[in-house]
């Protein structure tokens, strides 16, 4: 094996082979996925999707009152994704529910159906995650209310004693309570031992609000043509 061109051809084709297989083929397989309603089907009994869909070259508006899933995250939820990235949340939290019988994702209440590829097509940064130092975050917005999320981010020990999740006090501001207008409506409700003290209040910054909106948007609480809720 002395020839430079031969070695190069070999290393080129081995890598090209795996890229074609893993990346390109998957892309071709999934590129046509669109948001869909679970119920709508065309004449061949295939699901149709989007706000509009094509039938024989004619664009038809989707049925009113039906929502096509997954939804595109917008506004605060979309910005919150950036906070999630910047804080490195994905190193401890996954965003994928595995099928019933593989792991205990169902039994832990993380979801009542398996996550599928279509669930992620509207996200511009897909963070499935590879670690569960903390729980999976699919449907975390269904499991806990917003107040819980804010308290948990401010200091996880408030809601989950013994947690190893870091606190994020820098996403909040401690300020003195305005004597004229009284406590802010946005002030975070905190147990006494985490409260900064009388005369003070803790206000979530915009970043905290964005992050919580993002977390509340991670729900997969809809059925898709290819996946229905798992019956008990």
């Amino acid at each position: 094996m002395k020839s430079l061109p031969l070695i190069f051809l070999g290393v080129f084709f081995t890598l090209a082979f795996s890229w074609t297989g893993i990346v390109l083929t998957s892309h071709l397989q999934m590129k046509d996925l669109t948001p869909v309603t679970a119920e709508l089907v065309d004449k061949d009994d295939k699901p149709v999707g989007g706000g509009n869909f094509l039938v024989n070259g004619v664009t038809i508006k989707n049925t009113d009152g039906m929502t096509a899933y997954p939804l595109r995250p917008v506004g605060e939820a979309q910005r919150g994704k950036e906070i999630y990235e910047q804080m490195g949340c994905l190193y401890c939290h996954s965003q994928q529910v595995r099928r019933k019988g593989f792991g205990a994702d169902f039994e832990r209440g993380w979801g009542n159906r398996q996550s599928v590829a279509r669930d992620y097509i509207e996200q511009d940064r897909v963070m499935l995650g590879t670690m569960r130092t903390g729980p999976d975050l699919t449907n975390v917005g269904l499991r806990y209310p917003e107040l819980w999320q804010y308290q948990h981010i401010y200091n996880p020990q408030i809601t989950s004693t013994g947690s190893t999740m870091p606190p994020y006090p820098f996403l909040f501001e401690v300020q003195t309570i305005n004597e004229l207008t009284g406590p802010s409506v946005e002030a975070l409700e905190l147990p006494a031992n985490y409260h900064p003290g009388p005369g003070f209040e803790v206000i979530p910054t915009q970043r905290a609000k964005d992050l919580v909106s993002y977390l509340m948007s991670l729900n997969q609480d809809y059925e898709l043509p290819e996946i229905k809720f798992t019956e008990e």
């Binding site: 070999g10 290393v11 081995t14 890598l15 082979f17 795996s18 297989g21 893993i22 083929t25 998957s26 397989q29 999934m30 994928q96 595995r98 099928r99 593989f102 792991g103 398996q114 996550s115 599928v116 590829a117 669930d119 992620y120 499935l128 590879t130």
Partner: peptide, 24 residues
């Protein structure tokens, strides 16, 4: 050169990706 290329997707076993990729 041939096999290592394909191994990486084992990080997605059980995940929402085509089953054949995982098998490969």
């Amino acid at each position: 050169a041939l096999f290592y290329n394909w191994a990486g997707v084992h990080h997605l076993i059980g995940g929402p990706v085509p089953a054949w990729v995982i098998s490969a």
